[in-house]
Amino acid sequence: MNNIKIIYDTMNDLPENIDGKYDIDMLPTTIIFQGKEYKAGVDIDNDEFYKLLRDNKEIPTTSQVTYMTFKETFEKYVKEGKKVLYMAGSSKGSGTYQSAMLAKNDIESDDIY
């Protein structure tokens, strides 16, 4: 499995710390709460996020993973000779899937799934 790189975004409900245990990359969405930006799973964990929700009346917003983040990440692993398997969240719930597809289509490789 050394030639396969698995990538997911934070819309997937994978257990925390699975990425380090299995060398899987997580691409974080951005959570915007009270004017401050957090990278989900990086700057803030689930417990901290839910505490913010309980302690405040404001509802946070999110920002999708960008096209450039996908393009750079996909290119990095393709150049290393890896097949990339991206596990996407729903295309109905976020523009993240569309960003990933645009990046995939702009890379000359048949090794991105």
Rank of each mutant, 00 (worst) to 15 (best):
Asn2Met: 02
Asn2Thr: 09
Asn3Phe: 08
Asn3Thr: 11
Ile4Phe: 08
Lys5Asp: 05
Ile6Gly: 05
Ile7Phe: 12
Tyr8Glu: 09
Thr10Lys: 12
Thr10Ile: 12
Thr10His: 12
Met11Cys: 09
Asn12Ala: 14
Leu14Trp: 13
Leu14Tyr: 15
Leu14Ile: 10
Leu14Glu: 06
Pro15Thr: 07
Asn17Ser: 03
Asn17Phe: 00
Asn17Trp: 00
Gly20Lys: 06
Lys21Gln: 07
Leu27Glu: 04
Leu27Gln: 09
Pro28Asp: 03
Thr29Asp: 11
Thr29Phe: 12
Thr30Gly: 02
Ile31Asn: 00
Ile31Met: 02
Ile31Ala: 01
Ile32Gln: 02
Ile32Thr: 02
Phe33Ile: 00
Phe33Met: 01
Gly35Cys: 01
Lys36Trp: 01
Glu37Ile: 07
Glu37His: 14
Glu37Ser: 14
Lys39Glu: 08
Ala40Met: 08
Ala40Thr: 08
Gly41Phe: 01
Val42Trp: 07
Asp43Cys: 02
Asp43Ala: 03
Asp43Glu: 01
Asp43Val: 00
Ile44Gln: 00
Phe49Asn: 05
Phe49Arg: 07
Tyr50Pro: 01
Lys51Thr: 15
Leu52Val: 06
Leu52Asp: 05
Leu52Trp: 12
Arg54Cys: 02
Asp55Ser: 10
Asp55Tyr: 07
Asn56His: 13
Asn56Ala: 08
Asn56Gly: 03
Glu58Pro: 08
Ile59Val: 12
Thr62Gly: 01
Thr62Ala: 01
Val65Asn: 05
Thr66Met: 09
Tyr67Pro: 05
Tyr67Thr: 04
Lys71Arg: 15
Thr73Glu: 09
Glu75Trp: 13
Lys76Gln: 13
Val78Gly: 03
Val78Asp: 06
Val78Asn: 06
Lys79Met: 09
Glu80Asn: 09
Lys82Ile: 10
Lys83Asp: 14
Lys83Asn: 13
Val84Thr: 11
Val84Tyr: 14
Val84Ala: 15
Leu85Glu: 05
Gly89Lys: 05
Lys92Ile: 14
Gly93Glu: 13
Gly95Thr: 10
Thr96His: 06
Thr96Ala: 04
Thr96Tyr: 13
Thr96Glu: 07
Thr96Asp: 07
Tyr97Asp: 03
Tyr97Leu: 13
Lys104Tyr: 10
Asn105Lys: 14
Asn105Ala: 09
Ile107Ala: 04
Ile107Cys: 03
Glu108Ser: 13
Glu108Asn: 15
Ser109Arg: 02
Asp110Gln: 02
Asp111Cys: 04
Asp111Ser: 11
Tyr113Ser: 10
